[in-house]
Design a protein around this nucleic acid. Sequence first.
DNA 1: ATGAAAGCGCTAACAC
DNA 2: GTGTTAGCGCTTTCAT
Lengths: 341, 341
Amino acid sequence: MADGASDHTQSRVTIRTVATDAGVSVAAVSKVMRNAYGVSDALRQKVEASIEKLGYRPSVAARGMRGRTFTLGVLLVGIDNPFLPGIYQGIESVTEAAGYKIMVCVGAARAQTEAQLIEQMIDNRMDGLILVASQIAGDTLEHYARQIPIVVVGHHETSAVGYDTINNDDQRGAARVVQAFVDQGYRDIAFLTQFEPDDHPADVSPQRELGYLDAMRAAGLADHIRILRLPQSNAPREQDFHQLLTSPDRPRAVFCWSDLDAIPLLGAAFRLGIRVPQDLAIVGYDNSPVAALPMVALSSVDQDGPHLGRLSAEALFSRMNGRKVAEHIQIEPRLIKRGSL
Amino acid sequence: MADGASDHTQSRVTIRTVATDAGVSVAAVSKVMRNAYGVSDALRQKVEASIEKLGYRPSVAARGMRGRTFTLGVLLVGIDNPFLPGIYQGIESVTEAAGYKIMVCVGAARAQTEAQLIEQMIDNRMDGLILVASQIAGDTLEHYARQIPIVVVGHHETSAVGYDTINNDDQRGAARVVQAFVDQGYRDIAFLTQFEPDDHPADVSPQRELGYLDAMRAAGLADHIRILRLPQSNAPREQDFHQLLTSPDRPRAVFCWSDLDAIPLLGAAFRLGIRVPQDLAIVGYDNSPVAALPMVALSSVDQDGPHLGRLSAEALFSRMNGRKVAEHIQIEPRLIKRGSL
DNA sequence: ATGAAAGCGCTAACAC
DNA sequence: GTGTTAGCGCTTTCAT
C-alpha cells in the first residue's frame, strides 16, 4: 500500500534559498530564526524580508535532527472523554503563549498502545511530553523520562522521581462526595467503578475508591461500604445497569468513579422509572457538560481541567529548563451539586 | 522560556549501532527495515536480531528528511465535537492495518489557525493529511494540496481538483428531516444555524440549509420557511435560546444544524417547561451519544462517522499511491427517530 | 547481494 | 558580526 508515487514536487523553500536570496550565509538565517546572539539589525532585516517574501518555514523534521522542534507532544487516553477538552485547552493556552506547537496522539487506554505512542512522539523529536490519564506503569514512565521531559496528568505516581505529576486530589474529591451524601442523611452509599485497584493503583478510580473507603469509615459507615465493580469496558453497559437497578438490594446512593458511567446509569434509572434522587441518588466525577443539562442535572466533582492543563504545561517548561527534582502537585476538587443528590 | 538544559542524554540507538552490532552496512539495515528489494535471508535475520536485541526504533524525523515518515496527519476542528470520535476511529482502523501512525492537530474552527496547523504537519513531514470539518477556503486547500496529499471530510468542495472530499449528503439529510416533520403534520418548521451561507458555502451547515430550503419548497411550504441564525459562538447560548423559546412566534418545529445546538435548545425547553414534542418538536444532526440518552431522546441525523473515516483514509492511500483525479464521495445519512419529533 | 557515500535541511562550533 | 563546516540519522543511487 501507498508507494508515494505522487509528484508533490513543489520544490520547497529551504534555509539555503533564503540565504541566497538575502545574500547572507545559512548560519546567519539560522541565527535570525532562533533569535541567537550576534546578529546586526541590518542583517536581521534583510533575512526577515527574504523569509517573508519567500514564505519560508523551517522544516521541523530537520530541526529535530540537531536542535529543538518547539513542538510538544500530548498523549490523550481517548477522544471522547469529557475530562480531556478542558485539560487540552489549559495546556494550549500556555504553550501557545510560549510559541510552542502541540501534536496530539490518541491512545486507547491500553498500556501497550500508549507506550508505542510515546515512542512515536520521541521518534518525532518532540521537545517534551504531557501524558493525560495514561495507564502506563510508573517504572515504564521512568524509563521514557530518561529520554524526554515528561509530565503526567490524571495519574498518581507520587513517588515518581524522573517526571512530574499534576492531579486533582481524587481522594479528597471522593471524600467530599461521601460527606455530601452523609449530610443529606444517606447511609447506604455504594461506589461504582470498573477498575481493580490492584492492577492500577495509581489510576484515578482506585484513588477515588480509597477516598470513598476512608470517608465511609470516618463517618462510621464501615458496615455500609459497598463496591460495585463492573467489568472494564468502553461498550455501553445497559445490561449491567439494568441488573443493578432492578436488583432487590439496590443501593440508596451511588457514587460513580466518572460521569462516563454516571450518566448512562442515570439514563437506565430514567428508563426504569426510578426517581432521582427520591429513589436513588447519584453523584459522578468530572463535571462533564452533559451533567449540567437540566434534564440530566447530575451532581459531579469538578477537577478544573483548564487549571490542570496550565499547571502541567508550566511544569513541563520548567523541567525543560533544567529542573531535575520531581514535582507532584494536587489541586482541590469541587463538588457541583445538582438535582441528582 | 525553556532552554532545554536538561540532560536527556541517554545515547540513542541509531541505524549505525544496529549495523555495527549485526556486522553489516548501514544501507543493509535500512533496506531490511523498508522491506526493500535485494536482501538475503541470512542478512535479514542478523539485522532483525540486532534490532530486536537493541530495541532499535528508526527516527521519524530523520526518515522524513529523505523518505517517508509513515505518519499521517489528522486535523480536527476541535476536541469536544460529537462528530469527531467516530470519524477518528474509522480513520485509525484502516491506517493501523496499513502500518501507518497518526498525529493529530486540534484546530479552533478558525481558518487561520487551521492553516498554520496544516503547515505544521507539512513541516513535520507527514505523508498525507486528512482534514476533518476544516473551514479553510477551497483555493487555499488547493495550494496545500500541491505540497502534500490531502483528503477533506465534512466540507463540500465538490469542484476541488487537487484533493478529495468525503461527506455524508447533507442536503439529503436535511430533506429527510423536513420530510419526517411534514409526515407528522408539521408545517411551521424552522431551521436553526449559526453560519452564514455566503461566508462558507462549502460548510456542512449551509448545505443543510440548502437541503432544508429545497425540501420546504418541494413540500409546498415555501411560506413557512424560516431561518433562525444565531451569532456564531462556542459559548453556551442560554440567553439566545431562552429568548427564542419565550417569543410569541415560537416555531412549532425546529431543525438544528447540529446536536451541538439542538441539545442545549432541548435543555432550555426543558427548563422552561415546554413539552417536547407536544409543544415543540426538535431534530438535530450528528446523532451524538447524548442524543440517545433516554432523558434526552433527541431525534437526529446519523452520518456514520466510522464509515466516513474509513473512506477518507482509503482515499488518502489511493491518492498517495498516485491517483491524480479528485474523488468526491457522498454517503447516505440516516434519520434516527426518538422522542423529540 | 552488499556497501560506500552523497545528500535531506537544519543547528552549533569554530574560524575569520 | 558573519561565514564555514561538521554533523544529526536516515534513504538512495551507484559501485562492487
